[in-house]
Amino acid sequence: MTDKERKQLQLTANRVREGILTGTYCAKSGHPGGSLSAAEVFTYLYFREMRVRPEEPRWPDRDRMVLSKGHTAPGLYSALALRGFFPFEDMRTLRHIDSYLQGHPNMETVPGVDMSTGSLGQGVSAAAGMAKGAKYLQKDINVYAVLGDGELDEGQVWEAAMFASHYGLDNLCVIVDLNGLQIDGRTQDVMNTAPVDEKFAAFGFDTVWVNGHDFDELEAAFGRFHANKGTGKPTAILMRTVKGKGVSFMEDQADWHGKGPNAEEYERAMGEIMAARAALEG
């Protein structure tokens, strides 16, 4: 990618972070930590990788994305809004009683959401079903699933991995956001899932590690996913990330998994986001 393209993606990810903070601030709840750690991959998927039509959200031949870690809906919604699926201002209605922006992704109410999720482990199975369906229908459709590292505790993730490999779903790209934290603390302390790469490899995946905040590394990883077409191997992109990335006092803090910032915290966080934006634009 060119310097200009990279900078544009970085600016978009910065705006995704604004949406995450604004949404969770206005909702007085939600999950900023894991949304911020995945801001770059949401941006990359919707602005560079996926074939989607914001003006025709249910275009049958679109690529699919399932947010298996559905609690990070604020990140997904922000990316969708910025991509043109719905007004960015609506992030202010997140989780409100009269809003279509439900606390966890709802495919029936939110344009661009391909699967309702929220209960961990189920989204990746649904994504595998979509990939199997695309193969059965002989359609060139890519299916992406974004998972959290805490989510890997769920046995269903590995049932889905078995299924994907057994049916040769090389059109399925599983992306794991390994920010190292889950609700009760460090993933290695709560339930150690390491070695994640060897586990996915043992389940028949081609695995690739990336810095999840580096667009060049993401580009190379998705390139590998495309190169895996025809091999019958699904791809697992393992992203090393920082939970709460981009907001100094939220970074690497399990405490910021599932709460919204108060007015003072929102102001401080937005100050950092706007400073980062100014630096990018400067």
Partner: peptide, 19 residues
């Protein structure tokens, strides 16, 4: 295989594809 939870969610994914 003997994995009913995955089977049901896979079916959900298939249904979103019009099957």
């Amino acid at each position: 295989g003997i994995a009913e939870g995955n089977m049901v969610s896979v079916a959900a994914g298939l249904a979103t594809m019009g099957l």
